[in-house]
Design a protein around this nucleic acid. Structure first.
Lengths: 346, 346
DNA sequence: CTAATTTGTGCAAACGATTGCATGATGCTT
DNA sequence: AAGCATCATGCAATCGTTTGCACAAATTAG
């Protein structure tokens, strides 16, 4: 079936070395004669030669593969991120291998194990992120590594993410400016970087505006839509219910929409909604959602750039990049007349 | 850093063979003594041993990797499909490597080349699908291969897809039943299996209902949202415009929504919309879209099952699986009173 | 007490590619 | 004609595993 250098060597009468040089070196460098080159290339084609990257990787101690780990490949944010990463990596001549951890840290551990066993040249990880002992090990083994989206402040590792605090500030300040004070937050997976920083921004915005934080208005436990659905149902039972909901991720927002629709709650007339993340469909929803957009392309670009630098120069100082989010105002937030609230609390 | 069998052998005083057997065989089989086993395993842990899959793959001529190729990883349909495939493959102890071809056949070719160079044990391909010479080569090289979603009727290859003709029949018949006769079709990438079969179903439904096919109502050239946007804008300029649009894919439908909104065309009051594919957000759109759902989990399951069978038994007869689609009726189709049309054409 | 078996381990040849070093054949100087 | 570059190619070690075969020591059978 697939032939080897040896087969070609035997067929042409040249040595394996010569064949190898013709097929994979810039054959000028070794002064291979034109005639030899042509003969070898032709027989290679005839025999359907296909390099064996296992053998090459073994010999060179380099695979040209980058491992990528994300919590949920079906989440629009991550699938867009993967696509961008793939494009950036291809530019540099690297292939990549993706693992989906399903937000499960034990799967994340085994994904890392697999990738290291495959001897990838580097890793880009959006960690589940509640614990980082395994990540630290990679760093200590000095394998090039960049964290993306989910970082660890405590760890001195190259990382790229959006400024989540600022994103939340944008979102919540917007709500406050429109007159809201009872603003709920439906969070994602507690303990993850993305979640904690978004929560922090939420609290800070309220605090800056002199609004007391009501823990009853903070709930939720993962980034999936079911969480948004259940939490929203719960929030709607409060009396009075919040006038606005801020969700920590796109799928959570979908769940919130569903819950509202089920209860015949109109957005934004009855309740306002803003979400982190801004996938392609946000503007077509009913209503079009006001959302915090992350610069996904830029994130991928920076992550790959950092990785290349680390691979080239292992001892450079580590960099933590924070990118600017954008608030996209659409139709899911109502302007509240001040009295509404005041009267309520009297 | 990462140690090898040799390192452990030297440290413990045993041979490489023994170490290998302890670490990777069911060491009973070779009657390794308990004491040796413990010693070796302990030093392996101490030295942070990590198997080198390149070396193992080279030796065993088997990598435990399956290559997966899709046209667009960011398309919700494919990201869901990948997630399901990953789950199914993991069950069988296989890892997988995904490639995104961006609907570009030359990228598809080079993806296949890469995967074969990596010596994957099998391939699952959703081909761009306008040409199949490269696919035929894989088959001829007798590398286990399953086509998914995009198949080739002309090729005797294991394949799994939804019954696209039936899906289109469901969609168009539904429209006809609601009184529509001027039904447009915005297609995806011409020449692809998914597109041609969906188009075929569209035409057949019209034909069965005795409605003449109007080529002006058929347009479009890829599965992206921009295509839906542009085609819809064009359809709206026709006089009279169609009363209903059937789109060949989810992203196309999003584009169509945008065009309608831009022209202040209300769905379904002014025009009805049905789409192939039913991603998680369809029911939250404005309006919730009536859509044809594909059994993605089932597709993945069948594809992997077929692949396993092929790997086990290379000469079994090939199977082409067609799965049943579902019509999910929501709020994007209006019931037309018969006269409306009749009066129009008079 | 010898012969046969079992137990525990090691040797060495693959798998396919890369590359520093060596070598024999030319051609060029002086 | 002797010495020296240059040209074109080959040798052989190496990367880390796996595994058939071999073999000494310990055990059991007869």
């Amino acid at each position: 079936m697939s032939s080897t250098l040896k087969d070609i060597a035997e067929k042409t009468g040249f040595s394996i070395s010569t064949v190898s040089r013709v097929l994979h070196d810039n054959s000028k460098k070794y002064k291979i004669s034109e005639k030899t080159r042509v003969t070898v290339q032709q027989t290679a084609k005839d025999l359907g030669y296909r390099i064996n990257t296992l053998a090459r990787g073994l010999r060179l101690q380099k695979t040209n593969e980058i491992g990528v780990i994300v919590p949920d490949i079906a989440n629009p944010f991550f699938s867009a991120l993967i696509k961008s990463l793939a494009g950036e990596l291809r530019k540099g001549g690297y292939n990549f291998i993706v693992y989906d951890t399903d937000e499960d840290i034990s799967i994340e551990r085994s994904a890392i194990k697999s990738l290291l066993e495959k001897r990838v040249d580097g890793l880009i990880i959006a960690s589940v992120g509640q614990d980082f002992s395994h990540i630290q090990k990679i760093r200590d083994a000095s394998i090039p590594l960049v964290m993306i989206d989910r970082c660890f402040d405590a760890l001195d590792i190259d990382s790229v993410s959006v400024d989540n605090v600022k994103g939340s500030l944008f979102a919540v300040n917007h709500l406050i400016k429109e007159g809201h004070t009872r603003i709920a937050f439906i969070q994602g997976l507690p303990g993850t970087y993305a979640n904690e920083t978004r929560l922090q921004g939420y609290k800070q915005a309220l605090h800056d505006a002199g609004i007391a934080i009501d823990e009853h208005l903070i709930g939720g436990d993962d980034f999936r839509s079911m969480n948004g659905y259940l939490e929203t149902k719960h929030l709607l039972t409060l009396s009075p219910p919040p006038t606005a909901i801020f969700t920590a991720g796109d799928l959570i927002a979908l769940g919130a929409l569903e819950a509202c629709r089920e209860h015949c709650i109109n957005i934004p007339a009855d309740i306002s909604l803003v979400t982190f993340d801004d996938p392609v469909f946000t503007s077509y929803l009913s209503p079009a959602l006001t959302a915090i957009e992350q610069p996904i392309g830029k994130m991928a670009e920076m992550a790959v750039a950092l990785l290349y630098r680390r691979m080239k120069n292992p001892d450079d100082e580590r960099t933590k990049v924070l990118l600017e989010p954008t608030l996209n105002v659409r139709n899911s937030v109502a302007r509240l007349v001040p009295q509404t609230n005041t009267m309520h609390s009297n």
